[in-house]
C-alpha cells in the first residue's frame, strides 16, 4: 500500500522542477518574501534552464570520462599484467580522496586557466575515485565458484572478463557512478568561482547581492537534481542486480 508513496513523491518533485525551470516567473510569489522590496526574486542574469543544462552537461562529460578511465584502470590492475599496481592503486585512491574538491579545482586553474576546463578536470579526477574503488572491489570479490566454472568451461581470459566478470560487477560499478555523480553535482557549483557556467552562478550571485531567493533556487535545483539522479541510478542498479541474480 505504501510502496508507491516514494514514487509519487519523486514524480511530483520532477514535475515541480521542470515547471520551475520552464517558467520560473510562476513561482515568483513564493520567493518574493525572501528578498528586499526592489530586488528580483527570480535569477535574472541568464536563463535557469540553460544553466541547468550546462551544469548537467559538465557533470555528464566528467562522469563519462571518469567511468571509462576508472573501469579500464580497474580492469588493468586486476589482470596478471598489472597486478603489481594493485596495492599501490588502492592506497592512491585512499590518498586521492583526502584532496578537497575546492583544492583540486583551485590547483587546476594555474594549469589550464579559468572557465569550464578546471571544473571538468576537478570533477573528472574527483569522480574517478569512487568508481575505481567500487570496480576494484567488485572485480576482486567475485564468487570463486563462478570464476572456476568459467575457467573450467574453457573460456579465454578475455571471454571471462566480458561475459562473466564485468556483468557480475556491473551493479557495484553503477553504485560507484551514483556516488560520483552526486559529489560532482555539488562540486560543479563551486566551479562557478572559477567562471564555469553552472548553477553555482545563481548561488554566488545571491551571496554577492545578499539575495536569499537566488541562493535558495540555485541550491534547491541542484539538490533536486541530485535526489532524482541518485534515485534513478539506484533503480537501474537494482534492475541490473536482479537480472544478473536471475541469470
Amino acid at each position: 500500500m505504501r510502496a508507491w508513496v516514494p514514487t509519487i513523491l519523486r514524480s511530483l518533485l520532477l514535475l515541480v522542477l521542470i515547471a520551475f525551470l520552464v517558467s520560473p516567473e510562476n513561482f515568483e510569489p513564493l520567493l518574493k518574501p525572501l528578498v528586499q522590496p526592489n530586488a528580483p526574486a527570480i535569477y535574472n542574469q541568464g536563463s535557469l534552464l540553460s544553466l541547468t543544462i550546462l551544469h548537467l552537461r559538465t557533470v555528464l562529460i566528467a562522469t563519462l570520462a571518469a567511468t571509462i578511465i576508472a573501469v579500464l584502470l580497474a580492469i588493468l590492475v586486476t589482470r596478471p599484467f598489472g597486478v603489481e599496481f594493485l596495492a599501490l592503486s588502492r592506497s592512491l585512491v585512499n590518498i586521492g580522496q583526502t584532496f578537497p574538491p575546492v583544492a583540486v579545482l583551485a590547483l587546476a586553474v594555474p594549469a589550464v586557466g579559468f572557465g569550464e576546463k578546471p571544473t571538468l578536470i576537478a570533477l573528472f579526477l574527483y569522480g574517478l575515485l569512487p568508481i575505481f574503488e567500487n570496480t576494484l572491489t567488485a572485480l576482486t570479490n567475485l564468487p570463486r565458484s563462478v570464476m572456476e566454472a568459467a575457467r573450467g568451461s574453457g573460456m579465454t581470459p578475455f571471454q571471462r572478463l566480458i561475459q562473466v566478470e564485468l556483468p557480475l560487477s556491473l551493479p557495484v560499478v553503477v553504485a560507484g557512478i551514483r556516488l560520483s555523480v552526486v559529489i560532482s553535482l555539488a562540486t560543479a557549483t563551486i566551479g562557478s568561482t572559477v567562471a564555469a557556467k553552472t548553477l553555482g552562478e545563481v548561488i554566488i550571485a545571491g551571496l554577492q547581492s545578499n539575495n536569499l531567493a537566488f541562493v535558495l533556487q540555485g541550491g534547491l535545483i541542484v539538490g533536486a537534481l541530485a535526489v532524482l539522479i541518485y534515485d534513478g541510478l539506484s533503480a537501474i542498479e537494482a534492475m541490473i542486480a536482479r537480472r544478473t541474480g536471475a541469470a
Binding site: T187, I190, L207, L212, G219, V222, G223, Y230
Partner: peptide
C-alpha cells in the same frame, strides 16, 4: 544533496 555553498548561504 544540498551543495555546500548553497547551504552556507
Amino acid at each position: 544533496t544540498i551543495p555546500s555553498i548553497a547551504l552556507f548561504g
